[in-house]
C-alpha cells in the first residue's frame, strides 16, 4: 500500500524515531509560547530542515501541507472580519511549523520503524492482555484488507450499476458492511486453522 514516506532518502532517515518524536513534542509545546522574531525563526528553521532534503523532498513536503489551506483561508477571513488581519500570521505560523515538522518526521521514518516503536510503547499493556504479537497481527490484517475491501467495494458498485440506472450512493453501504462482517468471520476461521492468535 501507498505510504507517506519520502521518495528519496535524506539524512533525517538515519535519526532514531524516538529522537524525532521527542523533537516534535518539544517543538510543538515551545511554539505555543513563541512570539514575533522567535516565531519567525522557528518557521525558518522548519523550512530550512525541509529544504535540506533537496528538491524532490521539498516538493512532496509542500504537497503534504495542502490540506491546511482551507484553514488558512478560514482564519484569514475571520481575522479580516474582526478587523485584525495581521493576527492571522502568528496563528498560521504556529500551525504550519508544527504540522510541517511532524510531516517531515513522517516522511523520514519507515513504517516498520514506527510500528516497532508503537509495539515498544504498548509493552506495558501486555499485562492487561494485549500481547505485542497480537498488535502486529492486527496491523498486518488492516494493511492486507484495505485493498481487498476497496476492490470488493468497486465490484459491488459495478454489480449495482449493471442492474440499476441509479448511482449506488448510500445504498451500497449495506452490502459492503455485510461483506466486512462475513469476511471477519472467515478470516477468524483461517487464523484458527493456523494456530490462532496466540
Amino acid at each position: 500500500m501507498l505510504t507517506l514516506t519520502s521518495p528519496v532518502r535524506i539524512w533525517a532517515h538515519s535519526l532514531s524515531a524516538w529522537v524525532k518524536l521527542g523533537a516534535i513534542c518539544v517543538f510543538t509545546l515551545a511554539l505555543m509560547q513563541l512570539e514575533g522574531g522567535w516565531l519567525a525563526g522557528a518557521v525558518a528553521l522548519v523550512l530550512a530542515l525541509a529544504a535540506s532534503g533537496g528538491r524532490v523532498f521539498f516538493a512532496q513536503w509542500l504537497k503534504m501541507l495542502r490540506p491546511l489551506w482551507p484553514f488558512v483561508a478560514l482564519v484569514a477571513l475571520w481575522q479580516v472580519w474582526l478587523g485584525a488581519p495581521w493576527a492571522t500570521f502568528p496563528i498560521i505560523a504556529r500551525l504550519g511549523a508544527a504540522v510541517g515538522l511532524a510531516n517531515a518526521v513522517t516522511m523520514t521514518t519507515e513504517l516498520a520503524e514506527i510500528l516497532a516503536l508503537l509495539t515498544r510503547l504498548a509493552r506495558p499493556l501486555a499485562r492487561l492482555g494485549l500481547k505485542p504479537q497480537v498488535l502486529a497481527l492486527c496491523v498486518a490484517l488492516v494493511i492486507r484488507f484495505v485493498p481487498v475491501m476497496l476492490l470488493r467495494y468497486a465490484q459491488i458498485a459495478l454489480a449495482f450499476r449493471a442492474r440499476s440506472p441509479r448511482r449506488p450512493g448510500w445504498r451500497i453501504l449495506m452490502p459492503v458492511l455485510l461483506a466486512t462482517l462475513d469476511d471477519a468471520d472467515r478470516v477468524a476461521e483461517a487464523l484458527r486453522a493456523r494456530g490462532g492468535a496466540g
Binding site: 497480537v134 497481527l137 492486527c138 490484517l141 488492516v142 484488507f145 484495505v146 475491501m149 476497496l150 467495494y153 448511482r167 450512493g169 448510500w170 451500497i172 453501504l173 459492503v176 458492511l177 466486512t180 462482517l181 469476511d183 471477519a184 468471520d185 478470516v187 477468524a188 476461521e189 487464523l191 484458527r192 490462532g196 492468535a197
Partner: peptide
C-alpha cells in the same frame, strides 16, 4: 478470541475504506 481480533482489524480497515472510496452522494 480470533473472532474479536478479526472484527476489530476489519472494521479498522472499513473506516479507512469508507474514507478512501469516492464520495457517496447523499
Amino acid at each position: 478470541m480470533e473472532r474479536n481480533l478479526t472484527h476489530i482489524a476489519l472494521f479498522a480497515a472499513l473506516i479507512a475504506v469508507l474514507g478512501l472510496i469516492p464520495k457517496i452522494d447523499l
